[in-house]
Nucleic acid binder design. Structure first.
Length: 299
DNA sequence: ACTGCGTCCTGGGGGC
DNA sequence: TGCCCCCAGGACGCAG
């Protein structure tokens, strides 16, 4: 399930294997993947045709590829819960497209920084559960695609290094609400990139119960939680992301290896790595939360 | 203004 | 063995 580390892995893969390519054709197989595009698939295709991919950027779970005439327009990708991006040699046989292929871009020119110029590759957006989408359109003056304009910075953004003004503002924002701390961690407007898996992992590291009212955290405690979250994201990124059922793969089709590092998520009944108590799974906001009942008490 | 809940979707797996 | 229901979840829209 793609959260920040998985999306960053994909961003880096696209930078290596697709940026520099010129979009020769755009094939949209699913209107649902175009649901954020006002003008639908025709507008999407018209905007992209002939453009060259100049860079791959990310904020939280949002990934976008800048287009030539830098600073003006971009191709946005959100992976939802099951989205993948595959970049591979172009195949003519449409029957060999993966199941759930939603969009295919054919890239010519000089795609990637490792291959030889003149080859042709395809960038496939594959998404079984269809919560993901693509969108093409203008960048705001801040350099963000319009659907990203309201999304907060993420913990790998240098602007959120500990001690910066933005970091202090983030701590204030977190403590400025009585909502449960996990709800705040998942609010992409406050802080982006964290989903259900890494929220539970960060809370375990910080020994916090998910329902703790955010306003009850002292600034130092909020800071500890943020550093726990930053650590878990960084470690997961180093491992290439988390994968459970092959729904997530990187651009080459390889799965991540962070699953084995998880302390609580998906580990109901297994011993806590700190105290040995059995991890519990509890219904939370129409989903599940995993925690150690001893290390993360409700107080 | 702010919060929280329902909704979209698919296929794998468990239970009967 | 077969069928049905549940479950996973990101982000947004809407109700209160």
């Amino acid at each position: 399930m793609p959260e920040l580390p998985e999306v960053e892995t994909i961003r880096a893969g696209i930078a290596d294997h697709a940026v520099g390519g010129r979009i020769e054709s755009v094939e949209v197989f699913s209107d649902r993947a175009m649901r954020r595009q006002q003008g639908g698939r025709d507008e999407f295709a018209a905007l992209l045709a002939g453009r060259t991919l100049t860079g791959a950027r990310r904020r939280g779970k949002f990934l976008w590829l800048t287009l030539d005439h830098e600073g003006e327009e971009a191709l946005l990708i959100h992976l939802g819960m099951s989205g993948q991006v595959l970049v591979r040699e172009r195949t003519d046989d449409a029957a060999h497209l993966p199941a759930h292929a939603r969009v295919r871009l054919t890239l010519a020119g000089s795609p990637g920084n490792t291959g030889s110029p003149g080859r042709t590759v395809e960038l496939l957006f594959v998404d079984q559960r269809t919560f993901g989408y693509m969108w093409a359109g203008p960048l705001t003056p801040e350099g963000l695609p319009e659907p990203v304009a309201h999304i907060g910075r993420d913990l790998l953004d240098p602007a959120l290094a500990a001690g910066t003004a933005d970091y202090s503002e983030l701590v204030r924002a977190i403590r400025g609400t009585g909502r449960g701390i996990k709800t705040v961690l998942l609010d992409q407007r406050v802080l982006s990139g964290i989903g259900n898996i890494y929220a539970d992992e960060a809370l375990w590291r910080a020994r916090l119960h998910y329902a703790t009212p955010a306003e009850r955290l002292r600034p130092s405690r909020a800071g500890e939680l943020l550093e726990s979250a930053r650590d878990v994201l960084t470690e997961a990124l180093a491992a290439g992301g988390t994968s459970f059922d092959a729904l997530y793969v990187d651009v080459a089709g390889d799965s991540g290896y962070f699953e084995r590092e998880l302390a609580v998520y998906g580990r109901e009944g297994l011993p806590c790595g700190r105290c040995g108590r059995a991890i519990v799974r509890e219904p939370w906001a129409n989903r599940s939360s995993f925690r150690c009942p001893a290390c993360q008490r409700k107080r």
